[in-house]
Design a protein around this nucleic acid. Sequence first.
DNA 1: CTAATAGTGTCTATTAGACAGTATGTT
DNA 2: AACATACTGTCTAATAGACACTATTAG
Lengths: 275, 275
Amino acid sequence: MEKKEYQSEEEFLKNYDSSQFEKLSLTTDTLIFSVADEETGNYRKLPEKKFSVLLVKRDSYPFKDKWCLPGGFMRMEETIDEAAKRILKVETNLQDIYMEQLYTFGELDRDPRMRIVSVSYIALVDKNRLKEHLSKNASWFQMDILEEEREIQVTFDNGNESFSITIEKKLKNPTSDRYEYIVKKNTHLAFDHAKVIVCGVERLKNKVGYTDIVFNMMPKYFTLGELQQVYEVILGKKLLDPAFRRMIQDKVEKTDKIKTGGGHRPSVLFQYKKK
Amino acid sequence: MEKKEYQSEEEFLKNYDSSQFEKLSLTTDTLIFSVADEETGNYRKLPEKKFSVLLVKRDSYPFKDKWCLPGGFMRMEETIDEAAKRILKVETNLQDIYMEQLYTFGELDRDPRMRIVSVSYIALVDKNRLKEHLSKNASWFQMDILEEEREIQVTFDNGNESFSITIEKKLKNPTSDRYEYIVKKNTHLAFDHAKVIVCGVERLKNKVGYTDIVFNMMPKYFTLGELQQVYEVILGKKLLDPAFRRMIQDKVEKTDKIKTGGGHRPSVLFQYKKK
DNA sequence: CTAATAGTGTCTATTAGACAGTATGTT
DNA sequence: AACATACTGTCTAATAGACACTATTAG
């Protein structure tokens, strides 16, 4: 290929041949998390909260009949963020929800069809939107996360079907907080989505500590008890009431609404307060 | 396009036409940060530390003669991480250094030639490697960062040339820590690299607080004074000695080596201690 | 001796963890 | 009345911020 000398940027661009570099397809995959209520038999008890993720059943090859994250191919006329939003709407009917970029996965063999790089996103919705009309292949799965030493086990359950994955975490570098995720067991999830889910769960756990993103999973009005449950479910541990209330005191404001009917003392409803 | 029914995954893959989706080029761009010594006239004083980034002068269109981050096109037979490493070696002769993925930029107009998505990386090297033989277009720039309210100004200086950029930070969402970066002033940097640099600088500032990545910018043996200077330069503020020493006490271990010759009390040399 | 960094002791203010107690609905 | 959650007071432990002091070299 002969190198030509151009006199200006305009001239260069007019003559530019964009076919000279190898090209590939780019997809977005989105982790939609929510914290769902699960009714307990006891009329006094608050419904238990369950950390949930939305999965879609593949109806074609590759990975036919396996579960995967809602995702699809980016188009040339849209940004990556726009692609993620569009695809989410098409696949799940969800829109206007909190989204942020998680990580870009580019292993060679992550898709058996061809070389595909995937930009993953985290999306958060409040539990009321679990009931919105989803497209027919989408389903919410409750997750139970068991983390011990360097191994993470996640059990998924959508009421009908249940399965689990096991992932080993390995620090990429002793100085950093970046992990390599090694799939030890995975029978039901397509592509590298087992890794993506674990990566997203860990990121969410971390971010809950230093941002207000949990409020994207809350309805407009909520009690502090409910809010605390959501934190507890994401962090996977119980929190002490006074410490929790101190921590969130500047993030919320009291409303004049009250929630009654619980078989116990009524609770004041709060709402999110921006800083 | 007629939809065919396949009997198995193998059969499907054999018949798969990968040309049906639009494709694009993917590049990696790497922020290589270091903290350089700058000699002061005073024989007693420690050399001042300067936060530095490696830039490359473009020798062809587009953005001919502008500065940019070392980067290039990913190939089909390598992962994104591998591409970033390969390109770094070619463009700067640096290898075996700490690298981590930063963010994936995919605005429509970030490259005037065609649609290109770029996966950016952060790389860290210690000051001694500043002197390694760089390729002819590469140059280290000292950065002075001025952050006030929502505006960030960065001044770049490589000894020969000096310029500055101004970027406005805007929270994407009140609940999160993700910013949109709006370029207010930029005369010397190519593509969207002004944004990438600011994004990387902020990420580094944050990560310094909760990881040990600074040690990737340190030589094997260092004094606690030098280490403190590096933290101070990255964070952009002075730290109190006792607090600093408390903070790093479990991250370092004493050696039997001592640094003398400074016109003041000699200092014990330490090294990084993995957890 | 002096300027400069090296290194430590300690007081205080703030924050985090823990526990215990009171309050108030529904059935 | 009993249960379950709502909500608060307070003690203590741990941590962070601030200052002051001593130590030790080259010139």
